[in-house]
Amino acid sequence: MESLFVQLLVIGIKILVILGVVLGLGAYLTLVERKVAAHIQRRPGPMVVGWHGLLQPLADGLKLITKEDIFPRAGNRFLYNLALVLALVPAVLVFAVVPFGPEFEVFGVKVKPILTDVNVGLLLVFALGSMAVYAIALAGWASNSKYALIGSMRKAGIIVSYEVVITFAVMGPVILAGTLSTYEIVQQQINQKLWYIWLQPIAFVVYMFAMLAETGRVPFDIQEAEAELVTGFTVEYGGIKFGLFPLVEWYVEVLSLSAIAVVLFLGGWSPINIPFLGFIDPLFFLGPLSPFVWFILKVALLFLFVLWLHWTLPRYRIDQITETAWKVMLPLTFVNLVLTAVLAPIVWR
């Protein structure tokens, strides 16, 4: 009975920590993005609210909350609000299967820093990822606006194409690890002394492309192409409802997919890897904290890389995007799958 209580307490704490960190970080990543974008364009970005604009997200949030919530006259109110929930919940739920570090012990209780170590974790990630298409399609449809509808249809097209690609890209690491559990995949990489990016460079590149496409980042931000569609499916949303969509799409989803990329290709919480030989840990002085720092560092670097890409590249046309998915990316993943099948016995040993 007591162990059950402890278990529940641990799970409760984990949920609170993950929710707080993810949503708080999501809000602050807006500031990071604005700063990165500004410096790439040789501007200083927000500077006035707080030191170097540190309180800007709070000011933005306050402003968005106090704004009027306008609803289009001929829209469908139920679907309009449902789209918001459908966008936010799956994006945050993905963090349930993201392992942040190795198992550790506090007061004699063994804690795995992962909310649920289900043995089909990856399946869950991509199932939840495909839910995003519902949110966007509903948002476009319920707004009763042609801009929103066109934007959401474009995004739906992209997600449908890239879901297939991303699933096949992930197949490689899954074969090498022999499991679908995210925690176990990292454990396998540590046991095999190999980050899977060394054997799966094609899969990694394809995964990165698919990640950009799924989160609607440049060069695949065709769904909100501001020159043509104003802001795509968020046109008719106002106030904090408008603020939530980019928060979810551009920050929470990018974070979750970066975390999954780190788990699959960059060895999760393991330090720098020399293939088949071992790991070098320049952060050894942090002791038991080092794995967590490594994980956060990798995710942050990947996120910054996505931002860097976003503010560098121009946008592809919709036909070019889907063409790349079906004609280039998908065959590449098949080739990668065959290569992996050939190489896998070397890794398994």
Partner: peptide, 14 residues
Amino acid sequence: LSVTIRHAFSKTIT
């Protein structure tokens, strides 16, 4: 990317 990173680390001109 090399162009943008060079600009990102140079001084702002605003």
